[in-house]
């Protein structure tokens, strides 16, 4: 993963609080584990039935039956616990996961996300995306501001199928952080090496500036 991805992951990790039970989606969100601020102890929940997933093991210490939702090898952190799939998702839907960090294909002007299917192709995978979106107490979207083709990922209306009706709480890109309220997006922060002009011209939806940002 390139430095932009790590930069986004670092910006997401700033929002974690000690004791949070967090679930990281596949790809970019997985990197958040590498950037948890020092002194902040969080517990990684993985949908395939574990809380307390630890860092990637050395190659010779890989246990093929100890994996995360991305099927990558993990380890046991202090206090780790295993459970069945139904219990794992009861935990997710029941609001026992503090934060879900999700990657997206698109986010709409109300913060609703599309991250599971591409129109025109048979839909053959949904996994835990819909459960995490409805169940986690806080949903943070971790995404590059633009697609690889340079198109904005934050759009008026998603052209990809929605993952659910619930909006995300925070949207973090390498350029900006938005919160979401009932009226839509609120710009909370501009990345140090970006500008309001850049964010405005690459975010084709109306958004307001937060009170804190207005004060600057």
């Amino acid at each position: 993963m390139n430095s932009v991805m790590h930069d986004i992951a670092r910006r997401v990790a700033q929002h974690l609080e000690p004791g949070d039970v967090i679930n990281l989606g596949i790809g970019l969100p997985t990197l958040v584990a590498d950037h948890v601020p020092e002194g902040v102890k969080v517990f990684l929940h993985t949908e395939n039935g574990m809380v307390g997933a630890g860092p990637t093991p050395e190659p010779e210490k890989v246990d093929p039956q100890l994996i995360n939702a991305g099927k990558l090898p993990v380890t046991e952190d202090v206090g780790a616990a295993y459970f069945s799939s139904s219990e794992s998702f009861a935990m997710i839907r029941g609001g026992h996961v503090s934060v879900a960090v999700l990657g997206v294909l698109q986010v709409d002007r109300l913060g609703r996300i599309a991250n599971w299917a591409i129109p025109g192709k048979p839909i053959l995978g949904v996994g835990g995306a819909m459960d995490l979106l409805v169940g986690a107490k806080t949903v943070i979207v971790a995404t590059t501001h633009l697609t690889k083709k340079g198109e904005p990922k934050i759009v008026e209306e998603c052209s990809f199928p929605l993952t659910g009706a619930r909006p995300a709480d925070l949207i973090v890109t390498e350029h900006a952080t938005f919160s979401v309220d009932e009226e839509g997006l609120v710009l909370e922060e501009i990345a140090p090496d970006s500008t309001l002009e850049w964010v405005r011209s690459h975010t084709p939806v109306p958004f307001r500036n937060s009170a804190a940002l207005e004060a600057v």
């Binding site: 069945s84 799939s85 139904s86 998702f89 009861a90 819909m130 409805v134 199928p161 659910g164």
Partner: peptide
């Protein structure tokens, strides 16, 4: 959805006639 799959199996084994879930509301 994975959680719905797991819970549908659990319900099948627990003698339940089904369940209501927020997962998937408003989606395809």
């Amino acid at each position: 959805p994975q959680g719905t799959l797991a819970e549908a199996i659990r319900a099948g084994g627990a003698g339940l006639g089904g369940f209501y879930t927020k997962t998937g509301v408003g989606t395809d």
